[in-house]
C-alpha cells in the first residue's frame, strides 16, 4: 500500500455544535479506508475529535489537515481566534475556560489537551493571543 503523499483538508466552523465532530469522523473513515490499524486509527480519531471540539468551543473556526506519509500520520488543527494565553495551564488536567453551556453538553472538563497528549506520539502547540492556535499531532505506525 502506498501511503505517501496522501493529504486532506477539512474546514471547521467555530461555535457550530451540530457539525462538531464531522472533521474527526472524516479523518477516521479516511484512515480506515487506507487500511491503517484500527487501534492507531482510534488514537488519531480521539485526538482529532478533542482538537476539533477545542476549535468549535474556543475559536472562530479553521481547518483540520490530515497528512499520511511513510513515517507518521500527521493531523494539524489550525484555527483563528483568541488563542491560548497560558499554555502550561491549558495542558493541566481539569483546567478549563469553557463556558457553562459547553459544560452542560459534557465538554469543557479540562481534559481535551491532556487527552490529545496521551493519544499522540508527538504534540506541538503554537498559539498567539488574538490570532489563533496551531496544534500539530504526530502518530507513529509502530509505537
Amino acid at each position: 500500500m502506498d501511503r505517501a503523499g496522501m493529504s486532506l483538508e477539512i474546514p471547521v466552523e467555530g461555535n457550530n455544535f451540530s457539525a462538531a465532530g464531522e472533521a474527526a469522523s472524516r479523518v477516521k473513515k479516511t484512515l480506515l479506508r487506507l487500511g491503517i490499524d484500527s487501534q492507531l486509527v482510534r488514537r488519531v480519531a480521539i485526538a482529532t475529535y478533542e482538537a476539533e471540539m477545542n476549535m468549535v468551543i474556543h475559536s472562530d473556526g479553521g481547518k483540520i489537515i490530515l497528512q499520511v506519509d511513510e513515517e507518521e500520520i500527521k493531523v494539524q488543527a489550525v484555527d483563528q481566534g483568541r488563542g491560548i494565553s497560558d499554555l502550561e495551564l491549558a495542558m493541566k488536567e481539569g483546567y478549563s475556560t469553557a463556558p457553562d453551556e459547553v459544560r452542560e453538553m459534557g465538554f469543557g472538563a479540562g481534559m481535551g489537551l491532556p487527552n490529545i497528549k496521551k493519544c499522540a506520539d508527538r504534540l506541538e502547540i503554537k498559539s498567539v493571543v488574538n490570532e489563533g492556535t496551531t496544534v500539530v499531532m504526530g502518530f507513529k505506525y509502530q509505537p
Binding site: A20, A24, M105, M111, N115
Partner: peptide
C-alpha cells in the same frame, strides 16, 4: 457524564451509561 472521560477511559465495544442527551454523544 463527561465526554472527555468517555474518550480517555473507554475501550472499544463498551456500553455507555450517561445522562448526556445531546447529538455529540452519538458522535462520541
Amino acid at each position: 457524564d463527561l465526554i472527555s472521560d468517555v474518550l480517555a477511559f473507554t475501550k472499544e465495544k463498551t456500553l455507555l451509561l450517561t445522562g448526556l442527551t445531546n447529538p455529540q454523544i452519538i458522535r462520541t
